[in-house]
Nucleic acid binder design. Structure first.
Lengths: 114, 114
DNA sequence: TGAAATACCTTGACAGACGAGGTATAATGT
DNA sequence: ACATTATACCTCGTCTGTCAAGGTATTTCA
Protein backbone atom coordinates (compact mmCIF):
# COMPACT_ATOMS: atom_id res chain seq x y z
CA UNK A 1 0.00 0.00 0.00
CA UNK A 2 1.74 3.12 -1.20
CA UNK A 3 -1.11 5.61 -1.09
CA UNK A 4 -1.94 7.54 2.03
CA UNK A 5 -5.41 6.54 3.10
CA UNK A 6 -6.47 10.08 3.78
CA UNK A 7 -6.33 10.71 0.05
CA UNK A 8 -8.81 7.94 -0.60
CA UNK A 9 -10.87 8.82 2.46
CA UNK A 10 -14.28 9.92 1.39
CA UNK A 11 -14.16 7.72 -1.69
CA UNK A 12 -14.63 4.40 0.03
CA UNK A 13 -18.39 4.43 -0.38
CA UNK A 14 -18.15 5.49 -4.00
CA UNK A 15 -15.69 2.72 -4.75
CA UNK A 16 -17.90 0.10 -3.16
CA UNK A 17 -21.02 1.33 -4.93
CA UNK A 18 -19.11 1.35 -8.21
CA UNK A 19 -18.22 -2.29 -7.64
CA UNK A 20 -21.84 -3.21 -7.08
CA UNK A 21 -23.21 -1.38 -10.11
CA UNK A 22 -22.56 -4.37 -12.33
CA UNK A 23 -23.96 -6.98 -10.01
CA UNK A 24 -24.12 -8.40 -6.52
CA UNK A 25 -20.95 -9.38 -4.79
CA UNK A 26 -19.50 -9.87 -1.32
CA UNK A 27 -17.06 -7.81 0.70
CA UNK A 28 -14.00 -9.95 0.40
CA UNK A 29 -14.34 -10.30 -3.36
CA UNK A 30 -14.96 -6.61 -3.84
CA UNK A 31 -11.79 -5.81 -1.99
CA UNK A 32 -9.93 -8.28 -4.15
CA UNK A 33 -11.38 -6.49 -7.14
CA UNK A 34 -10.02 -3.19 -5.84
CA UNK A 35 -6.63 -4.79 -5.37
CA UNK A 36 -6.67 -6.15 -8.90
CA UNK A 37 -7.99 -2.97 -10.49
CA UNK A 38 -5.12 -1.02 -8.99
CA UNK A 39 -2.48 -3.64 -9.73
CA UNK A 40 -2.00 -4.21 -6.03
CA UNK A 41 -1.43 -0.57 -5.22
CA UNK A 42 -4.50 -0.18 -3.07
CA UNK A 43 -6.96 -2.18 -1.06
CA UNK A 44 -9.24 -1.47 1.87
CA UNK A 45 -8.32 -2.60 5.35
CA UNK A 46 -10.81 -5.13 6.63
CA UNK A 47 -12.03 -2.90 9.44
CA UNK A 48 -12.62 -0.11 6.96
CA UNK A 49 -14.28 -2.49 4.55
CA UNK A 50 -16.87 -3.92 6.89
CA UNK A 51 -17.72 -0.64 8.57
CA UNK A 52 -18.29 0.85 5.13
CA UNK A 53 -20.71 -1.91 4.17
CA UNK A 54 -22.53 -1.50 7.45
CA UNK A 55 -22.77 2.25 6.86
CA UNK A 56 -24.05 1.80 3.33
CA UNK A 57 -26.64 -0.71 4.41
CA UNK A 58 -27.83 1.53 7.25
CA UNK A 59 -28.27 4.39 4.81
CA UNK A 60 -30.26 2.19 2.46
CA UNK A 61 -27.79 2.28 -0.43
CA UNK A 62 -27.27 -1.47 -0.40
CA UNK A 63 -28.96 -4.50 1.06
CA UNK A 64 -27.55 -7.88 1.95
CA UNK A 65 -28.36 -11.58 2.03
CA UNK A 66 -26.47 -14.71 2.87
CA UNK A 67 -25.21 -16.77 -0.02
CA UNK A 68 -26.29 -20.40 -0.28
CA UNK A 69 -22.87 -21.88 -0.90
CA UNK A 70 -22.84 -25.52 0.12
CA UNK A 71 -19.10 -25.45 0.55
CA UNK A 72 -16.48 -22.93 1.67
CA UNK A 73 -16.87 -20.01 4.04
CA UNK A 74 -20.26 -18.33 4.23
CA UNK A 75 -20.61 -15.17 2.19
CA UNK A 76 -22.75 -12.13 2.76
CA UNK A 77 -23.80 -10.79 -0.62
CA UNK A 78 -24.65 -7.17 -1.21
CA UNK A 79 -27.00 -5.67 -3.75
CA UNK A 80 -27.15 -2.01 -4.74
CA UNK A 81 -30.55 -0.33 -4.32
CA UNK A 82 -32.09 2.47 -6.35
CA UNK A 83 -31.08 4.86 -3.64
CA UNK A 84 -27.58 3.45 -3.93
CA UNK A 85 -27.53 4.10 -7.68
CA UNK A 86 -28.67 7.66 -7.14
CA UNK A 87 -26.10 8.17 -4.42
CA UNK A 88 -23.44 6.77 -6.71
CA UNK A 89 -24.28 9.28 -9.44
CA UNK A 90 -24.20 12.10 -6.93
CA UNK A 91 -20.85 10.96 -5.54
CA UNK A 92 -19.37 10.69 -9.01
CA UNK A 93 -20.36 14.26 -9.74
CA UNK A 94 -18.88 15.41 -6.48
CA UNK A 95 -15.65 13.61 -7.24
CA UNK A 96 -15.55 15.24 -10.62
CA UNK A 97 -15.86 18.68 -9.11
CA UNK A 98 -13.51 17.96 -6.21
CA UNK A 99 -10.89 16.68 -8.64
CA UNK A 100 -10.92 19.94 -10.57
CA UNK A 101 -10.82 22.04 -7.44
CA UNK A 102 -7.95 20.10 -5.92
CA UNK A 103 -6.04 20.21 -9.18
CA UNK A 104 -6.48 23.94 -9.25
CA UNK A 105 -5.43 24.33 -5.63
CA UNK A 106 -2.43 22.08 -5.32
CA UNK A 107 -0.74 23.38 -8.44
CA UNK A 108 -0.70 27.15 -8.34
CA UNK A 109 2.19 28.95 -9.91
CA UNK A 110 0.71 32.35 -10.59
CA UNK A 111 2.14 35.41 -8.91
CA UNK A 112 -0.91 36.33 -6.93
CA UNK A 113 -2.30 33.43 -5.01
CA UNK A 114 -2.67 34.65 -1.46
CA UNK B 1 -19.44 25.37 0.01
CA UNK B 2 -20.80 22.62 -2.21
CA UNK B 3 -18.03 20.05 -1.93
CA UNK B 4 -17.96 17.52 0.84
CA UNK B 5 -14.94 18.19 2.99
CA UNK B 6 -14.07 14.54 3.17
CA UNK B 7 -13.13 14.66 -0.49
CA UNK B 8 -10.64 17.43 0.14
CA UNK B 9 -9.47 15.84 3.37
CA UNK B 10 -5.87 14.90 3.12
CA UNK B 11 -5.17 17.72 0.68
CA UNK B 12 -5.29 20.58 3.14
CA UNK B 13 -1.56 20.51 3.79
CA UNK B 14 -0.77 20.28 0.10
CA UNK B 15 -3.02 23.23 -0.66
CA UNK B 16 -1.39 25.35 2.01
CA UNK B 17 2.12 24.44 0.92
CA UNK B 18 1.18 25.21 -2.66
CA UNK B 19 0.04 28.64 -1.58
CA UNK B 20 3.35 29.31 0.13
CA UNK B 21 5.53 28.13 -2.75
CA UNK B 22 5.42 31.57 -4.35
CA UNK B 23 6.08 33.57 -1.24
CA UNK B 24 5.23 34.17 2.40
CA UNK B 25 1.69 34.85 3.38
CA UNK B 26 -0.67 34.63 6.34
CA UNK B 27 -3.50 32.25 7.14
CA UNK B 28 -6.43 34.50 6.49
CA UNK B 29 -5.09 35.65 3.14
CA UNK B 30 -4.26 32.13 2.05
CA UNK B 31 -7.79 31.04 2.77
CA UNK B 32 -9.08 33.98 0.79
CA UNK B 33 -6.82 32.85 -2.02
CA UNK B 34 -8.39 29.40 -1.90
CA UNK B 35 -11.82 30.94 -2.01
CA UNK B 36 -10.86 33.05 -5.03
CA UNK B 37 -9.05 30.25 -6.85
CA UNK B 38 -12.18 28.10 -6.65
CA UNK B 39 -14.59 30.91 -7.49
CA UNK B 40 -16.05 30.68 -4.02
CA UNK B 41 -16.72 26.98 -4.21
CA UNK B 42 -14.33 26.03 -1.44
CA UNK B 43 -12.57 27.44 1.54
CA UNK B 44 -11.15 26.04 4.75
CA UNK B 45 -12.99 26.40 8.03
CA UNK B 46 -11.01 28.53 10.44
CA UNK B 47 -10.48 25.74 12.95
CA UNK B 48 -9.18 23.49 10.17
CA UNK B 49 -7.03 26.28 8.84
CA UNK B 50 -5.19 27.11 12.03
CA UNK B 51 -4.83 23.48 13.04
CA UNK B 52 -3.22 22.77 9.70
CA UNK B 53 -0.73 25.61 10.09
CA UNK B 54 0.16 24.41 13.55
CA UNK B 55 0.65 20.88 12.24
CA UNK B 56 2.82 22.06 9.36
CA UNK B 57 4.95 24.18 11.64
CA UNK B 58 5.41 21.35 14.12
CA UNK B 59 6.57 19.07 11.33
CA UNK B 60 9.07 21.67 10.13
CA UNK B 61 7.44 22.29 6.75
CA UNK B 62 6.81 25.95 7.46
CA UNK B 63 7.98 28.54 9.96
CA UNK B 64 6.27 31.69 11.14
CA UNK B 65 6.93 35.24 12.24
CA UNK B 66 4.79 38.20 13.22
CA UNK B 67 4.33 40.88 10.60
CA UNK B 68 5.37 44.41 11.43
CA UNK B 69 2.17 46.09 10.31
CA UNK B 70 1.79 49.40 12.08
CA UNK B 71 -1.91 49.37 11.44
CA UNK B 72 -4.70 46.80 11.22
CA UNK B 73 -4.93 43.43 12.89
CA UNK B 74 -1.68 41.62 13.65
CA UNK B 75 -0.69 38.99 11.11
CA UNK B 76 1.31 35.83 11.55
CA UNK B 77 3.26 35.21 8.37
CA UNK B 78 4.35 31.79 7.24
CA UNK B 79 7.34 30.79 5.17
CA UNK B 80 7.87 27.44 3.48
CA UNK B 81 11.06 25.61 4.43
CA UNK B 82 13.19 23.28 2.33
CA UNK B 83 11.55 20.39 4.07
CA UNK B 84 8.24 21.95 3.16
CA UNK B 85 9.21 22.13 -0.50
CA UNK B 86 10.28 18.49 -0.48
CA UNK B 87 7.08 17.50 1.26
CA UNK B 88 5.10 19.44 -1.31
CA UNK B 89 6.72 17.56 -4.18
CA UNK B 90 6.04 14.27 -2.46
CA UNK B 91 2.41 15.18 -1.82
CA UNK B 92 1.92 16.26 -5.41
CA UNK B 93 3.16 12.90 -6.62
CA UNK B 94 0.88 11.12 -4.20
CA UNK B 95 -2.06 13.15 -5.40
CA UNK B 96 -1.18 12.29 -8.96
CA UNK B 97 -1.21 8.60 -8.20
CA UNK B 98 -4.27 8.75 -5.97
CA UNK B 99 -6.17 10.60 -8.66
CA UNK B 100 -5.52 7.85 -11.19
CA UNK B 101 -6.40 5.11 -8.77
CA UNK B 102 -9.62 6.75 -7.66
CA UNK B 103 -10.58 7.42 -11.25
CA UNK B 104 -10.03 3.79 -12.03
CA UNK B 105 -12.01 2.64 -9.01
CA UNK B 106 -15.06 4.86 -9.04
CA UNK B 107 -15.78 4.32 -12.71
CA UNK B 108 -15.73 0.65 -13.47
CA UNK B 109 -18.02 -0.66 -16.13
CA UNK B 110 -16.32 -3.87 -17.15
CA UNK B 111 -18.06 -7.17 -16.62
CA UNK B 112 -15.62 -8.57 -14.14
CA UNK B 113 -14.89 -6.21 -11.32
CA UNK B 114 -15.42 -8.25 -8.17
C1' DT C 1 -22.37 54.35 18.11
C1' DG C 2 -22.55 50.02 16.31
C1' DA C 3 -22.07 46.66 12.77
C1' DA C 4 -19.04 44.38 9.68
C1' DA C 5 -14.61 43.01 8.16
C1' DT C 6 -10.00 41.64 9.26
C1' DA C 7 -7.09 38.50 11.83
C1' DC C 8 -5.84 35.56 15.31
C1' DC C 9 -6.82 31.38 18.50
C1' DT C 10 -8.81 27.12 21.47
C1' DT C 11 -11.93 23.52 23.04
C1' DG C 12 -14.75 19.61 22.54
C1' DA C 13 -17.21 16.55 19.63
C1' DC C 14 -17.59 13.69 15.64
C1' DA C 15 -16.65 10.56 11.75
C1' DG C 16 -13.80 7.60 9.06
C1' DA C 17 -9.70 4.68 8.88
C1' DC C 18 -7.27 1.10 10.93
C1' DG C 19 -4.40 -2.02 14.12
C1' DA C 20 -5.30 -5.79 16.67
C1' DG C 21 -7.90 -9.05 17.95
C1' DG C 22 -11.54 -12.73 17.25
C1' DT C 23 -14.48 -16.82 14.73
C1' DA C 24 -15.01 -20.62 11.30
C1' DT C 25 -14.23 -23.45 7.14
C1' DA C 26 -11.54 -25.29 3.12
C1' DA C 27 -7.45 -26.10 0.52
C1' DT C 28 -2.68 -27.01 0.26
C1' DG C 29 1.81 -28.50 1.55
C1' DT C 30 4.91 -31.61 4.00
C1' DA D 1 -1.74 -36.63 10.20
C1' DC D 2 -0.79 -31.98 10.99
C1' DA D 3 0.32 -27.25 10.09
C1' DT D 4 -0.12 -23.50 7.35
C1' DT D 5 -2.38 -20.59 4.27
C1' DA D 6 -6.43 -18.73 2.18
C1' DT D 7 -11.15 -17.58 2.37
C1' DA D 8 -14.69 -14.95 4.74
C1' DC D 9 -16.89 -12.85 8.31
C1' DC D 10 -16.86 -9.52 12.46
C1' DT D 11 -15.83 -6.00 16.66
C1' DC D 12 -13.37 -2.88 19.78
C1' DG D 13 -10.60 0.87 20.84
C1' DT D 14 -7.56 4.34 19.12
C1' DC D 15 -5.99 7.95 16.19
C1' DT D 16 -6.36 11.86 13.16
C1' DG D 17 -8.43 15.59 10.62
C1' DT D 18 -12.50 18.44 10.36
C1' DC D 19 -15.55 21.66 12.26
C1' DA D 20 -19.16 24.10 15.20
C1' DA D 21 -18.95 27.16 18.65
C1' DG D 22 -16.86 29.99 21.28
C1' DG D 23 -13.33 33.68 22.28
C1' DT D 24 -9.95 38.16 21.59
C1' DA D 25 -8.55 42.55 19.34
C1' DT D 26 -8.35 46.13 15.75
C1' DT D 27 -10.06 48.93 11.86
C1' DT D 28 -13.45 50.63 8.64
C1' DC D 29 -17.73 52.43 7.36
C1' DA D 30 -22.47 53.79 7.78
Amino acid sequence: MSITSDLIRGHTDTIILASLINGDSYAYRINRGIYDATSGRYELKEATLYTAFKRLEESGCICSYWGDEETGARRRYYSITNRGRETYKKLINEWSEAKELIERLVIRDTADNG
